[in-house]
Design a protein around this nucleic acid. Sequence first.
RNA 1: GCCGAAGUGGCGGAACGGCAGACGCACACGACUCAAAAUCGUGCGGGAAACCAUGCGGGUUCAAAUCCCGCCUUCGGCACCA
Length: 806
Amino acid sequence: MEAYNFKEIEKKWQDKWQDEPAFKAVDFHPTKPKYYILYEFFNVSGGLHMGHLKGTVPSDALARMKRFQGYNVLFPIGGDAFGLPAENAAIKAGVQPQQFVVSGLENALSQTKRIGLSFDWSRTICTSDPEYYHWTQWIFLQLYKHGKAYKTKGYVNYCPSCKTVLSNEDSQGGKCDRCGSDVIQKERWVWFLKMNEYSEKLLGNVDRIQMAEHLKEAQRNWIGKSEGMQVSFKVVNDKNDEVGNFEIFTTCIETIYGITFMVLAPEHDLINKWLPFIKNKNMVEKYKNDTAKRSALDRMADQKQKTGCVLEGIFAVNPVNGKKVPIYIADFVLAGYGTGAVMAVPAHDQRDYEFAVAHNIPMIQVIEGDCSKCAVEKKEYLVNGAKLINSEEFSGLSVKEAKNKISQKLIEMKLGKKQINYKMTDWPFNRQRYWGEPFPIIFCPHCGEVPLTEKDLPLVLPIVKDYKPNEHGDSPLSKAKNWMNIKCPICGRDAVRESDTMPNWAGSSWYWLRYVDPHNDKCLADYEKLKYWGSVDVYTGGTEHITRHVLYAFFWQNFLYEIGAVPSRDPFAKKYGSGLLLDDQGKKMSKSSANGVSPMQVIDEYGADVARLHLHFLSGFEDNVPWTYNGISGITNFIDKVWNLQSIIKGEEVTDKHRIDLNRLIKKVTEDYEEFKPNTAIAAMMSFIKMIKEDSYISKEELRIFLILLNPMAPHITSEIYERVFGKNIVNENWPKFDPQCLETESVEIPVQINGKKARVITVNRNVSQEKLLELIKQKYPELFADGKVIKKVIYVPNKIINIIK
RNA sequence: GCCGAAGUGGCGGAACGGCAGACGCACACGACUCAAAAUCGUGCGGGAAACCAUGCGGGUUCAAAUCCCGCCUUCGGCACCA
């Protein structure tokens, strides 16, 4: 028989699959149940790398298996094309982003085909197509109309290199997610989406989704729920006249008698209001300016040196005892969290302690413990049963009791209320860049913000020559005068458009909905179709998106649900995070670090089936794994053996000898594909082939079943052999079922332990009784009992193990 | 600092209370060959053996890589969150 020519054969099948009807999802299929498998769409800023192979192939395998199992499978793909990555790549290549994206997506998709992925190509979308971003803009318009989008001046993360505002999600660790520069805080006009309002609902999504616990934990930490008290403090001048008040948030109200100073974030608005009463205005202004200049990273780097500036001439009054304490501004207090102000209890909070030491502020201890070297914090006093001291009528109470009673007292005084805060902030949604969705908003000097009407959508991004960001951080669109200047639709006078664009996460925050109905020009997707396809059954992609894209997705889906545009709050029922593919230095393979091994290189040399199998035999789906060619010969060997099965076909039906192995294989492979464990599925198939080789024959029925089992991971070779042997296209086959009666052999090998140590192995009939088994052991291995010791106890796990205790 | 995950042969990794090292790579020997490659076969944690072995030290259990407690190391996430 001729050798397996993967080049010719893989090409043949890939061409066939371009238009394979079996891979097309059918809306409202009359008989088949639906199954929606989603792989994160490609960011169109470079070609594919091996990392994409790691993510896509097990999803493809699941899609192929589900089709065999009789499901109506939706397995689509598309391009995430707007945003900084694509724009920066276009700048680097010196071409227009429009051009760059079209060729980039085409390239990515053609590479995808060469991996043998069975996407439904008829549903391909691209976020920078007006047909698509029409609906991204429509969603923004709905957010705006429902009060979930607002423009305000605020301090936000800003990347001086990309010259644009960034969200917290885009500047994790104080570094720009795109270019790695240090992020600074800048006051700018910002479009915010009210994501914080959705915190509790997002926690609901996190609870309901099926996902690895550590990923859920990462999301919960990011949302950062904490329960405490919000308390109002009066502000007085040095003559004791009340000049204002402010609110603080605390989770440790039990320490309120320990307050010796108060701290506001330097950006806090009220400071300007109090300025007339502040005696050291210059120092205060200077501190505010210094803070503004420091990058987020700088601020974090000096955690031990707590800087700050006292507001001379005004004081805060402790509501429980009337005590006057100084007020500071300091950059360790964050403007964006809670109320941007805190009560400082140096005896019981380490940051307050360090600040007090640095600024020579006294301490008052109010909970038992040793505060001489550092603060006694809640993680200590909450567990050791310490009691309150120096706290008037609350002294002597346990912390838990005091928490309740002090809260109660403040609530009765109408100065406090229970409050839940979340770390997750509202989403800064505009970028001063060209390559994104234009905002459907007009600014009129007379009418203010005027949203476009829905029939004006899509608002098409104009093609401009100079689209690079400029030094002042103005948006490139502001220079496109013809586009910018417009008559106000209300009053008809001169007005301008919003010149900022949306961030690259906008288009990806709803794309799974569009696959359901990709060409609808009446709405984002037909409601009945959305109902039919429901939540994505299995969503796969990188874990690095877990606290960004996935949370944005939850947010938009909740909003769209609330306005009746989609039928469910949950975009995804189950999420698997694929591990990273690393280079030989242990670094992540990515387009940005240019260390990616091209999958095309591997496919050219070994073929797509070998590439698919090798990569997924290397490690588990969720594990990070360094790319290596080591071991690939084991896979080529396996593929050759599979090809050569054609020459040892004998008989039609499954032989008795192979029946159990085959049924076990069906069970194992089915479960492993379902659970994203391709590595052990492949191992099981190798073992099966080993057994077949030993026996030197395979019946037609065994071959048929084996080919179907292997097809999801190695679709090309299995399709070819199937066609040659059975004269049909394998895609129309049914997934084999195992017979539960045929999983077990009649005899079993049982390890015999003496006092917990393995001594012998005995082969007996399945389901033998303990008495009978013991008798057989005594007969066969009398030497184990030669010492004459009495058997004290026997533990027998049927068909598994027997342990004899003497 | 906080949260999380993981430490198993020369290597990638199985098993996740019940025979540790499945499956593969590498290696060694043998067959085929004039020879080599490819292929096939055999062996392959350590130890002469009793035994010892799943990062280290304890514990629970008839039985622990697996469960519990305390360390160490590595990786990932968050990071002054009041």
